[in-house]
């Protein structure tokens, strides 16, 4: 009985080598697949590494001065503008996105024609490139509504852009909430509205939040949709003023060619934001998984 049990469905390294010498084609495929994965990983590591190594040394305290001027291209006003932009865009996209998802999941009856149309338009919105949003925002908010280049015009443009993201993630989160929750609530005498707000939405919260966070990521990184809606003014902007967000700040700096290093430092900040956003959203996804189990 000293012999260990050996599973017959597991191949040792030797077996594997033998199998691959007999099937060289399989080995080539294995190599190709491995190489592709390595390329993907190395590309990301190189990109992130390059930006960090070249940008971190230029991340000086003076870049966070409250005032922007041509001697010190501070990114602080742009950071403040970015926060305002995120807040304004979410103010519109979150209630409408969640409301639409609630209608689709909780109210629409099976075979409702409207549901198909809403899904189709949401899918269309997802596929539209940001430059088209920028054009539309300029034609509609800036010119037709007469808001001129302003944070509000930019924020409304972005709100439409991220609307399908909020809507789809909320919809998925609502669908994950077991039917028994709703039945239990109805059984206790709660109305539909009360059931939605007290039972279904809290249970779906992690999923909804992860959608909101994804949207924040898109808003922070957006440039093309903002150049001709929010403009590129350098100062801290009010709601109706033109102002540049961090991403536009970086674009203008790298375009002028005089401030490559400061642009690189801005890229570091943008990368940090993306890293944080990704970490938080995967944390929320885990929480959703755990609550489902």
């Amino acid at each position: 009985m000293d012999k260990k049990l050996k599973p017959i469905n597991q191949m040792s390294v030797k077996d594997r080598i033998k199998s691959y010498t007999r099937h060289p084609g399989s080995f080539v495929l294995l190599l190709l697949v491995g190489i592709a994965a390595v390329i993907t990983v190395i590309t990301l590591l190189f990109l992130v590494g390059y930006i960090l190594v070249n940008g971190l040394p230029y991340l000086k305290p003076s870049l966070f001065a409250w005032e922007y001027n041509s001697d010190n291209v501070s990114m602080m006003p742009a950071i403040v503008n970015t926060i305002l932009m995120v807040f304004l865009a979410l103010l519109f996209s979150v209630p409408f996105g969640i409301g639409a998802a609630i209608y689709l999941v909780e109210y629409a009856k099976k075979g409702n024609k409207l549901v198909g149309v809403v899904r189709l338009t949401a899918e269309t919105l997802t596929g539209i490139p940001s430059i088209i949003y920028g054009l539309f925002g300029m034609l509609f908010f800036v010119i037709a509504l007469g808001w001129s280049y302003s944070m509000l015009a930019g924020a409304m443009t972005l709100a439409i852009m991220v609307l399908p993201t909020v809507m789809r993630t909320t919809e998925e989160a609502l669908l994950c909430v077991p039917l028994s929750y709703r039945e239990g609530s109805f059984g206790l005498g709660a109305g539909k509205l009360r059931t939605i707000f007290k039972i279904v939405l809290p249970a779906a919260m992690p999923g909804i939040l992860s959608g909101v966070i994804l949207s924040i990521g898109r808003i922070v990184g957006e440039t093309a949709a903002l150049i001709y809606t929010a403009g590129t003014m350098t100062g801290m902007a009010g709601v109706m003023d033109s102002g540049r967000t961090l991403a536009i700040h970086m674009y203008v700096l790298s375009n002028e060619g005089l401030h490559k290093n400061e642009a690189n430092a801005t890229a570091v900040i943008l990368l940090f934001i993306v890293l944080i956003i990704n970490a938080v959203s995967s944390l929320l996804a885990k929480k959703l998984e755990a609550s489902k189990a």
């Binding site: 990301l44 990109l47 930006i51 990184g221 790298s254 890229a267 993306v274 956003i277 995967s282």
Partner: peptide, 21 residues
């Protein structure tokens, strides 16, 4: 997470990487 990070990097950062590398 690596693939998610690639998806999250703003296009302006990709553009900058293109210009300098």
């Amino acid at each position: 997470p690596i693939v998610n990070l690639l998806a999250g990097i703003p296009s302006i950062v990709y553009g900058f990487f293109g210009v300098v590398v």
